[in-house]
Design a protein around this nucleic acid. Structure first.
Lengths: 340, 340
DNA sequence: TTGAAAGCGCTAACAG
DNA sequence: CTGTTAGCGCTTTCAA
C-alpha cells in the first residue's frame, strides 16, 4: 500500500540494493545514480520502513525505560532527560510504569525483549534485583539510573547515580550545625540501595557529632507522602521527640510537614525538615523546603548517552557515574528551638 | 543467535506453520500437537520476535504519545492513564516531548510512522494543527487527548476532553458567588482550543452576573508559572485592580500567588485565586488551591481505549468524549474584601 | 559501482 | 488438522 524501496528503485531505474546503499551510505555509489535515487525518493515521498530494516539490522533504535511511576515528579524529571538524549541520538523510548512490582518489571522486560529494544534504562532496581541479573547474564545493554545493585563483581554494569552517602550526610550535617541533636530519619525502602547509602550518610554525620542515634526515629518505609505523614504522627506519640527530620524524598518531607501542622507544630520554628531530590514541589510548599538537590534530568541524559554508546559498540560496560549533589537551603530549617 | 520458530518446529517435529498456529490460536490444532509445541516452546524458552511478526501482520502493538512535556504534572498524569490502558490491552507506548513545537511534533510523527506505530495519542494539538490534519488525511488512527481541533466536519476524529466551557464557568461563578466583581482571567495560549472554551465559560459567567469584562485583565499566555507571576505583577501596576483570578492551570495560579506574596497581598484575604487541573501541587501549595478538577488519568485511559478499539476495527472514528469536571474548593478563595 | 539473490523471523493463503 | 510456500520491506554478501 505505501511506497517501498522497490518503487523507488523502479522510478530511479536502479536496483533496490543501490537504493539501500544511498539510504544507508553503506558503500560508494556514483554521484549520478545517487542523485537519481534521491530524486525518486523525494518525488515518491518515500520513507524507509524501520520494522523491515530492524529485522535484518537487528536494531530498532528504541530503548526501554523502566520506572516505578511517571506521575512521581522525580521520575518524570529522569524520564525527560532520557527522552531528550534519546531524541538527540535518534532513538525513541518506550516507557513502562512498574509500580515497584518485580513481577510487572519482569513482564515488561520480556515484552520489550520481544519487541527487540536495543537496550534498557532502569530506575526500578532493588539492590538484589533478579530481573537485572538475568538481563546482565544475557548481555543485554542496560544502564541503571538513580539506582544501583550489588553484583558489580560478577558482571560489569553501567549506572548513573548521585552521591547518596554525601546526600544523607549533608542533610544531617546541616541540621546538626543548626544545633539539632534529636534528628529523625525517614527513608525509603531498605530494599533500594540508595536508602541504605543515605542512612550511612546520616549515621556518619551523627557519629561525627557524637550524637545518639535512636532507632525509634530512624525508619524505612516508602517514598510517599503518606509515609511521612503517618510516621511523623507515630513518632510524636512516642517518647523520643525529634526537633528535626531528614527524609528520603521531598514527598515524604511534605508528609512530615503536613503531620506537624496537624499537631500544631510550626516548621521551622518548632521542627526543621529536610527533603531529598528537589522536585518542583519543594520550592512551592509552605514553607519552601530545604532539600538535597539531585540533577535529575542530567542523570537521565547521561545514562542514556552511556547506553547508546554501549549499543553502538563505542564502549564497554562497567562504568559508574556518580553525580554530585548539593543542599538547597530554603525555609523549612532553622536553629533548634531553645528548650529552657 | 536466539531461538526461532524453526527451532521450536524442529524440536516439536512439526512445521513452522503449526507453531505459528498455536502461538496465534489462528486456526485449529489438534490437542496432541499443541501440547508438543507448547512443550518445545517451554523447553527452548522461546519467545516470538515481534519485529518479524509486525512485518507481516502490520501491527506493532505500539502507540505513539505526543505531549508537550512529561515533567508537567498535568501531562504526566495523562501519560500514566495512557500507559495503564496500553498495558491492559497489550500495547506499549513511545513517549515524545514536543515542547509545544510544531516542528518537533512533525518530526516525531514521521519518525513514529516509520516505526509503524499502530496509532497516535496526541495532547499537543493547536486548534488548527496541520500535522493532525495530515494524519487524518492518511487515515492514521489517532485520538486527541485533552485537546481538540477545528475540522470535525471534514474528517471524523476521536477526542477525549473535559468540559472546558463549564470549567471556565464554574471557576468564575464560584468567585462571583463570593462577591467578586473585578475578576482577572489568565489563560493559556489562544492557539489551543481549550483556552478559548474556558474563556467562553468565563465570559458567560461574567455576563450572567452582568459584570464588566476588562480586557486589560483577560489575557492569554502560556501554561507556565512565570506567566502567572509576571502577568499578576503587570496587572497590579495597572489601573484595574482585580480581587480575584481565574487561571488556565494550577502552575499559572501558583505563579499568581507568588506574585501576590511579593507585593504584599494575602491570599485569600486580599485576593482570591482559582487554578485549573488539580495537579498534586494544588493541594500542597500555601494556601492550598481552589481549582477545577480534571480527571486526567481517566482521560488518558479512555483515550487509549478508544484508540485501541479503533485500531482493532471494533469501531469507527468520530467519537467525542467529554468528561465532567468539578470545582475543588480549598483555601485560596474567599469572600471579596470589603472596600469601605 | 552496480545487480541478483539469499535471508531476517514470522504469517497466511493454499493444498492436501 | 497440517505442511509448503510465498511474501512482509529491507540489508548484505557475492559476482559481475
Amino acid at each position: 500500500m505505501s511506497v517501498t524501496i522497490y518503487d523507488v528503485a523502479k522510478k530511479a531505474g536502479v536496483s533496490i540494493a543501490t537504493v539501500s546503499r544511498v539510504l544507508n551510505k553503506s558503500s560508494a555509489v556514483s554521484d549520478r545514480t545517487r542523485r537519481q535515487v534521491e530524486e525518486a525518493i523525494k518525488e515518491l515521498n518515500y520513507a524507509p520502513n524501520f520494522i523491515a530494516s530492524a529485522l535484518t539490522k537487528k536494531s530498532t533504535l528504541t530503548l526501554g525505560l523502566l520506572i516505578p511511576d511517571i506521575t512521581n515528579p522525580f521520575f518524570s524529571e529522569l524520564a525527560r532527560g532520557v527522552e531528550d538524549a534519546s531524541n538527540d541520538f535518534g532513538f525513541n523510548i518506550i516507557i513502562c510504569n512498574t509500580d515497584y512490582s518485580l513481577e510487572k518489571e519482569a513482564t515488561y522486560i520480556s515484552l520489550l525483549k520481544q519487541k527487540s529494544v536495543d537496550g534498557f534504562i532502569i530506575s526500578t532496581a532493588y539492590y538484589n534485583d533478579k530481573n537485572i541479573i538475568e538481563l546482565l547474564k544475557d548481555n543485554v545493554p542496560l544502564v541503571l539510573l538513580g539506582r544501583d545493585i550489588d553484583c558489580s563483581e560478577e558482571y560489569p554494569m553501567d549506572a548513573v547515580v548521585s552521591d547518596n552517602i554525601k546526600g544523607g550526610y549533608i542533610a544531617t550535617k546541616h541540621l546538626i550545625d543548626l544545633g539539632h541533636e534529636k534528628i529523625a530519619c525517614l527513608l525509603g525502602p531498605a530494599k533500594i540501595k540508595v536508602n541504605l547509602e543515605r542512612e550511612k550518610g546520616y549515621l556518619k554525620a551523627m557519629k561525627e557529632a557524637k550524637l545518639k542515634v535512636y532507632k525509634e526515629i530512624l525508619t524505612h518505609g516508602d517514598f510517599k507522602l503518606e509515609f511521612g505523614y503517618k510516621e511523623a504522627l507515630r513518632i510524636f506519640k512516642g517518647s523520643i521527640r525529634p526537633t528535626a527530620f531528614v527524609t528520603g524524598n521531598d514527598l515524604t518531607a511534605l508528609g512530615v510537614m503536613r503531620a506537624l501542622k496537624t499537631i500544631g507544630l510550626s516548621v521551622p520554628r518548632d521542627v526543621s525538615v529536610v527533603g531529598y531530590d528537589n522536585i518542583i514541589l519543594a520550592e512551592m510548599s509552605d514553607p519552601p523546603l530545604t532539600t538535597v538537590n539531585q540533577q535529575m534530568q542530567k542523570m537521565g541524559y547521561l545514562a542514556t548517552e552511556l547506553l547508546i554508546k554501549r549499543i553502538k559498540g563505542e564502549r564497554n560496560a562497567g562504568k559508574k557515574v556518580v553525580l554530585d549533589i548539593n543542599l538547597v537551603v530554603r525555609k523549612s530549617t532553622s536553629k533548634v528551638p531553645s528548650t529552657n
